[in-house]
């Protein structure tokens, strides 16, 4: 069995267990621990954080390989910066609501979470195929990722938002509503930028722009996509699972 699939199965089991834990023993500590474990798996196996420290001796600084390493450091620093934004949102959520949570549609929340997780798996598959030189396989998997990502975004913005508003959780009605829409909205915005980036990469790959091993944009799109997933790994329990209902 391929590594990507193994990691995905562990992630899937953890997500299911997370849901069960939230129903049986709603412990913020346990849920936080599981989210951290999931994020760790994605960051290591899907985002290949270890590539940052892989010491390959490249002396020619004008070479593509060296520049790729430089770009990688830049991308990760950008993600570090972005991480502070999402951490700030999480802290604001706990500052405003403490260990309570608004009433939301649990089935829908679980469904969109699964969609995003599965999309991460296909993104990983797409990247692997690309590295193997299988352009058709890359495209097929990237299309699936795009579709799932779009479904996630619409699921949140076009389905979840109106549903929540209909149940009385409006952006202007309470701080709970405000922080819910800000967190999901900010995340959806990042999903949207990831989709646009992925679409551009997919188009350019089809036109053969990334020939001769110059595939940094593919890796960048993948790493960014997984980062968006990692953010949701924390946002999902923070919004849907942790705390008692208001």
């Amino acid at each position: 069995m391929k590594q990507g699939l193994k990691v995905f199965l562990i992630l899937a089991v953890l997500t299911a267990v997370e849901f069960a834990v939230a129903l049986l023993v709603p412990s913020a500590f346990l849920l936080g621990l599981m989210a951290t474990a999931k994020a760790g798996l994605v960051i290591y196996y899907y985002m290949h954080i270890y590539k940052l420290v892989a010491e390959e001796e490249i002396t020619d600084r004008e070479s593509y390989a060296y520049k790729e390493g430089t770009n990688r450091v830049g991308l990760w620093l950008f993600l570090l910066s972005d991480f502070f934004l999402f951490a700030g949102l999480l802290i604001s959520r706990f500052n405003l609501l403490g260990f309570t949570r608004p009433h939301l549609n649990q089935t829908l929340g679980f469904a969109v979470t699964v969609m995003l997780l599965v999309s991460s798996y296909f993104m990983n598959r797409a990247e692997t195929r690309f590295k193997e030189g299988d352009l058709a396989g890359f495209q097929a998997n990237a299309w699936i990722t795009l579709g799932l990502g779009l479904a996630f975004m619409l699921g949140v913005v076009a389905v979840e938002w109106p549903l929540a508003a209909a149940e009385g959780l409006t952006a202007s009605g309470s701080a709970a509503g405000a922080i819910f829409y800000l967190m999901t909205g900010m995340h959806a915005f990042h999903v949207l930028t990831g989709l646009i980036f992925l679409a551009i990469v997919l188009r350019n790959a089809r036109h053969g722009v990334f020939a001769e091993g110059k595939g940094w944009p593919v890796e960048a799109a993948a790493v960014y996509w997984h980062f968006v997933d990692v953010v949701w790994i924390f946002f999902y329990p923070a919004l849907y699972l942790i705390g008692t209902l208001i």
Binding site: L96, A171, G173, S174, A175, A176, I179
Partner: peptide, 9 residues
């Protein structure tokens, strides 16, 4: 959006 309005939490 009432983030800083104590009346609404």
């Amino acid at each position: 959006m009432p983030f800083f309005n104590p009346d609404l939490g």
